[in-house]
Design a protein around this nucleic acid. Structure first.
Length: 312
DNA sequence: ATGCCGAGCATCGCTCGA
């Protein structure tokens, strides 16, 4: 299963680029952020024509998130992040797709800091931490992906000192990101290719793309039901005319366990954390990089996901 | 400290993003 996240920076303006990328790379599930369009203006028909079911949560001018699923209609689970009924910004959507729970998130940027926007970022991050904890404990197959607006370490930016006062590098959001990872999630890019340095965002200003002055702020976090087989950043998308300032981040995931294992894990009270190697499925060293066959995917859990409201 | 780019809109100048 190939999953991807892309801050598209206006889905209407970027629609031709998005469709071209979908046709070339054929991801199974895509998380989009910064749609910058009301839900009713989301380009549903163009994406459906490419075989994608869509769940969009839009908003005029700013924000907006969507989940796209090739050959499936995403089953809505949540259209906002629990924990603050006053928060009206379209930054979170969750759906069950072919038996896997996907969250698409657009974390507040937080600049300038300190200030009310940074406070909002920290509160939002804490709500996300609690949500991620609940999803981890559900035992379901889960993938969290989006624009997290956090540079996890100084190795994830071209020159940290020029950004030292920026909200993306502050200790508090970095600690919040680390706290979510410590629940047991795998940071797909970091885990699969720890020696490589990836950037996912290059500011339009100061020729930062031309200078490869980038940041890694778009992340795919994978639950214990999957092994990360391959990852990448489609950098060429950032270099195109009329491009978003972010590039797509993708990961190839392979189920690690049988369809019953999440429930078995709950019965045995397995503690949170990485799954011991002996309990993983055998490493698929010779496995092809293409998407797994349908019979290798987890059993659909729609009967479970569709009826359970995770927002309560 | 500022504008640098790209975009929206209470549009020809401001705000926002990151």
């Amino acid at each position: 299963m190939r999953v991807a996240t892309w801050n598209i920076n206006n889905v209407i303006r970027r629609l031709d680029l998005l469709c071209s990328w979908l046709e070339r790379t054929r991801p199974d599930v895509v998380a989009l952020q910064e749609l910058k369009t009301p839900t009713q203006d989301f380009p549903l028909q163009r994406l459906q024509a490419l075989g994608y079911g869509c769940l969009a949560v839009g908003q005029r001018t700013w924000n907006g998130v969507a989940l796209l699923a090739r050959g499936h209609e995403p089953l809505p689970v949540a259209t906002s992040l629990p924990g603050d009924a006053q928060d009206k910004e379209a930054r979170y959507v969750e759906a069950a797709i072919n038996g896997v729970l996907f969250a698409c998130l657009y974390l507040p940027n937080g600049n300038p800091q300190p200030g009310p926007k940074f406070d909002y970022k920290l509160r939002w991050f804490e709500r996300l931490r609690q949500r991620a904890q609940a999803l981890w404990e559900s035992g379901q197959p889960v993938v969290l992906m989006g624009d997290w607006n956090v540079v996890p370490t100084d190795a994830d930016i071209y020159k940290p000192d020029t950004w030292r006062d920026d909200a993306l590098l502050q200790p508090q959001p970095r600690e919040a990101f680390a706290a979510i990872l410590s629940q047991g999630w795998t940071d797909a890019l970091q885990d699969a290719r720890p020696k490589d340095r990836f950037f996912t965002f290059w500011d339009y200003r100061r020729k930062r793309w031309e200078r490869n002055a980038g940041l890694r702020i778009d992340h795919i976090l994978v639950g214990r039901s999957f092994k990360v087989e391959n990852v990448g950043v489609d950098r060429e998308e950032r270099g195109r005319d009329n491009a978003s300032d972010h590039a797509p981040v993708w990961a190839e995931l392979r189920p690690t366990r049988s369809k019953r294992t999440p429930l078995a894990a709950k019965r045995t009270n397995e503690p949170d954390g990485p799954v011991p190697a002996k309990r993983r499925a055998p490493a698929a060293k010779s496995a092809p990089r293409s998407a797994p066959k349908s019979e290798e995917r987890p059993e659909p859990l729609s009967h479970y996901n569709a009826k359970r409201d995770f927002t309560k």
